[in-house]
Amino acid sequence: MRGAVVAVVVREFLRFARQRGRLLSTFARPLLWLIVIGSGFERVVPTEGTVSYKQFLLPGIYGMVLLFSTMLSALATVHDREFGPIRMLLVAPLPRGVAVLAKTLSSALLGVFQAVVLLPLIWILGLRPSVTSLLEFLGTLVIAALALSSLGMLLASRLRSIENFAGVMNFLMFPMFFLSSALYPASSLPGFLQPLVRADPLTYGIDLMRHPLLHGLYPVNLGADYTVRFDLLVLAALTVVLFALACLLFGEEEHLGRILLTEAPRGGKGTAPGPRPAPASGRPEALSAGATPNRARTPAGLHARRHG
């Protein structure tokens, strides 16, 4: 089991290091946000106390790094399950949950690693955390990353194909980012959005990061919204629940959904006809065997339909 986790972690990191585009965008995106949005908002948002807007924004940027990294890992998992080493994991002598655990941990670690590379931003923005605060901050990164990667795995267990990427981006990643307290204190959003703000795991992740990073400063209107204890509780609970669900559904996939993933004919009621003409009945494997299965193209968005 440890071997499996190590195998997957090493593999994810090697791949990350070799994909230039991903490497570049990982570091360019947060910098762009920090510089452009940070500078722009700094003029608009009135700041009182001792925290500048950019300093307030920084934990949000780390949250963004974690969010994008874990969601990209999740989408890669969707592809991997069919064409990649995840299949090797599924036929290796390991309990079902180990595959999910290995992916969740490696995805979280990869996210934390990217955030750690961007740590110098803390000092560049003039923050001077103590060693204790810094260690606490690293801890918050790990906790937030675990919650997000569990969410990603749950998503991966439900997504049928990587084609839904745009949907995930538009209907999940961006709303999660904007509804979290990344850009403005959660309390400053209007009441009707509050339920969404509170349902967003990123809210608590970023809030948690604010505590150690802005520690010792006296933010008046720009600070954490919740207590450390509350953030921790929510994130831990989320991680456990999301991970358990992902294990459950990944397992289901294996036995029921897997065929649907690799394209069994859909004789069921209410299913839209695939892009390819239906095969002669009685030869269902023509679909599952081919390298170009007739993946149903769902409109952008998550594939919410339950299999089976």
Binding site: A4, A7, V10, E82, F83, G84, R87, M88, A92
Partner: peptide, 23 residues
């Protein structure tokens, strides 16, 4: 039927993934 290799990894790294997997 479909390859499960990592194209961005070397031959050796692909094999090592497996030996790690099996401990």
């Amino acid at each position: 039927q479909e390859t499960t290799l990592d194209l961005d990894l070397t031959a050796e790294e692909n094999l090592r993934f497996c030996t790690r997997l099996y401990g």
